[in-house]
Amino acid sequence: MEDKTRADLFTTMVQIRAFEEAILADYHADKKPAWDIGAGLIPGEMHLSAGQEPVAAGVCAHLDNRDAVTATHRPHHFAIAHGMDINKLAAEIYGRETGLGRGRGGHMHLFDPDTHFSCSGIIAEGYPPALGQALAFKRQGAGAIAVAVTGEGAANQGAFHESLNLAALWNLPVVFVVEDNDWAISVPRTSSTSVLSNADRAAAYGIPGIRVEDNSVEGVYDAAGEAVQRARSGGGPTLIEVHTLRLWGHFEGDAQAYRPELPEVPGRDPIPSYEQQLIADAVLDETQIEQLRDEAKKRVQDALDFAKSSPTPDPSTATHYVFA
C-alpha cells in the first residue's frame, strides 16, 4: 500500500477521534453533579464511535461525495470520513439552527444532501433506503454507489436480510458493511448470532462476503476497494463484516458492567497501534503526527466554536418542516 494512502487513512482516523473526544468532553462537562441525560450543551443520547474509525476510514477512502452512505445510530465516524462539513455536523449535535437539520434531527438523524449521507436510529433500517439510492444511481449510469452500514446486532433483523436479497436480485451497486463491535448494547454476539461470521450470510444471497479481522484499517481498505470497484462496474453488492472495537460505552453514561474484558479495551485502541506501525515503516514521523493531530484538533475546535456560537432554533418554529 502506498505511503500516502496509509497516511491518509491515519489522518482520517485521527480527525474522527479528535471530534469524538471533543464531543465526549462537552457532553459530560455539564451533566454533573446529578447525571441528567437531557441536560447541558449536548442533550440526549450520545453514541460515540471511538475505536471504530478503521471501518469508516477504510471504506470511505474509496468514495467521493456523489456516493451515498447510510449509517447507524453511531454515525459520526462515517459522516466525517465521507467528507461531511463538520461545522454543520457539530451544530446539529448542539441542536443549533445552523445544523444539518436545523436542530430538528440530532446526532442519530443526520441528513446531508451534499454528501448523500443519512443515518437511522433504528437498527438495520438504514439498509433499505440505500437500495433506493443505489437504484437511482444505477439508472443515472454515472457509476455512483451506495454504502449501507449496520452493526452486527442488526444482522439478525429482517430488514438486513430483505435488503441483501433484493440488492442481489436487482444487482444493485451497494456495499453492505457490518461493524461487529462484539456488543449489541449488553448482548454479546455469541448470544445473538447463529453464525461465527456475518460474512457467511452473504452466501445465502449469492453475493461475495468477506470478514476483516483485527480492526485493521488496511484490511478494510483492501476489502472495500474490491467491493466498491465491483459495485461501480456493475458487479452487484458485497457484504463486508469488520471485527472492530467499541472503545467506549454503547451510549455515554453506560457503565458497561456487563463487559468482562473492559480492562483490556484501551489496549486494543486501533489508533496508537497504527501510529506505531506507520512510524516503524517510516511513513510518518512523530513530528508529522503531532502536526496532523494539532490540525485535526484545530478543525474540531473551529467546528465546536461555530456550533456553540450559532443560534438555537426559535421555539415558534417548532412545527415547521413537517411538509415540503
Partner: peptide, 13 residues
C-alpha cells in the same frame, strides 16, 4: 420493508 425503503432512497435521489 426492503422495497418501501428502496422507494424512500430512490425518492431522496
Amino acid at each position: 420493508t426492503a422495497f418501501i425503503g428502496l422507494g424512500i432512497g430512490a425518492a431522496v435521489e
